[in-house]
Design a protein around this nucleic acid. Structure first.
Lengths: 209, 209
DNA sequence: GAAGATAGATAGCAAGCGCTCACTTTCTAT
DNA sequence: ATAGAAAGTGAGCGCTTGCTATCTATCTTC
């Protein structure tokens, strides 16, 4: 008995395995970290052979760079979704945005991005290869932030405030070693986010409409 | 001709090579990152053989944990030195403390600590082994901060503000991929630190003496 | 100064790494 | 239907890894 097999074009097959490899790389990076994300581990996770991997990606690093660009796009989208339709008039508004932002920053794709960034610090080639994606990500996030805050913050202050918020959340993510980083924020962190919201709102009061 | 050789006790020899190994591990971690810090690399850097390493440390992980505790102590001291004799009355005072703090957070020992923290996220054993040092570090830093700010911030707010500052600086350090992270802060970062100082001071005004 | 303990050097092992290559399977063009 | 291109397989190569076993050098104890 022959199992019925769906017929796919070459392009579909290609895209399918490439996508599976990228997703598997994200999973491996978040679950095992950079060092343990071997080509064999990725292939096992994706359910393909090593030959398949090296057909589409010339080196392990190429796979990682492709994964970085993959998650960078998704991270921008997540960031945009977080601020979509949000208001920043009251302290509660801002605190709400911060809470959602924190959840986004702790997501697997953001974790993957961070893992690659850390690895790039000690690897000049990877650092250079990651530079375009880094600049694109930064520019896009700044644009999204401008959409939300642009009318109340000056062109100088917007990136500065963004730097405070994003870097604090990133730092939080780095030092959150719990197996499930999406768990409850913890009292200090909760208080810190609330405090940050209060500070920002009181420093940039609602402009008279 | 026999070269004159200083005579050392066993304890001195022991301490000497252990110290050299810990220092070498710090150097390797900051310059090459966690994955490339192999036992061979550390031994080459320290100028001892692999046999010497495995006499004093049963496994590579034991060496890394010992290094973590080593730098944790030095990090607390650096943090204390930063706030020693500092005042936090004006915005300029706080901005000054933040600038010094930033430099401390970017130091090699702090970089080493961060590298180990990131590795611990994906390695449950390392995470458990690092927990005591983590808690000690956190408690000590909180104590130092209380010395500086304790009279103006409540017991609830102090750790929260500390969380904002430290996590922001850590996040900054993580995303600073430049070969020399002690370089000039960059305009956005400078503005961000200034802004943070303004926010904190205006949110916690000097208490009437 | 002999005996024993500790420190350090060197060679090498099993396992895992990134990657290649000869090969089969699946799709496409004629 | 068939030739050829593209996709995917899996054994295996050269190399590095953490770690061990064996041996020598140095210090301590009596």
């Amino acid at each position: 008995m022959t199992t019925t097999r769906e017929r796919r074009t070459q392009a579909q097959r290609r895209e399918g395995t490439i996508g599976a490899l990228l997703e598997a790389t994200v999973t491996c990076l978040t679950e095992r970290g950079y060092a343990a994300t071997s080509t064999a581990a990725v292939c096992a996770e994706a359910g393909v052979s090593q030959g398949a991997l090296f057909r589409h990606f010339p080196t392990r690093q190429a796979l990682l760079v492709a994964t970085a660009e993959h998650v960078a796009i998704r991270n921008v989208e997540a960031f945009r979704a977080t601020t979509e339709g949000a208001t920043v008039d009251t302290v509660d508004d801002v605190a709400d945005v911060l809470a959602h932002l924190r959840a986004a920053v702790l997501s697997p794709t953001n974790q993957t991005w961070r893992e690659l960034l850390v690895a790039a610090r000690a690897d000049a080639d990877l650092r250079d290869a990651l530079l375009p994606a880094r600049e694109l990500l930064q520019a896009q996030i700044l644009a999204v932030a401008a959409d939300l805050w642009g009318d109340r913050l000056s062109a100088d202050d917007l990136p500065a405030v963004l730097s405070i918020v994003i870097n604090m959340l990133d730092g939080l993510a780095f030092s959150a070693l719990d197996p499930d980083p999406a768990a409850a924020p913890g009292r200090t962190v909760e208080r810190a986010l609330r405090l940050l919201a209060e500070m920002i709102v009181s420093h940039y009061p609602e402009e008279p409409s």
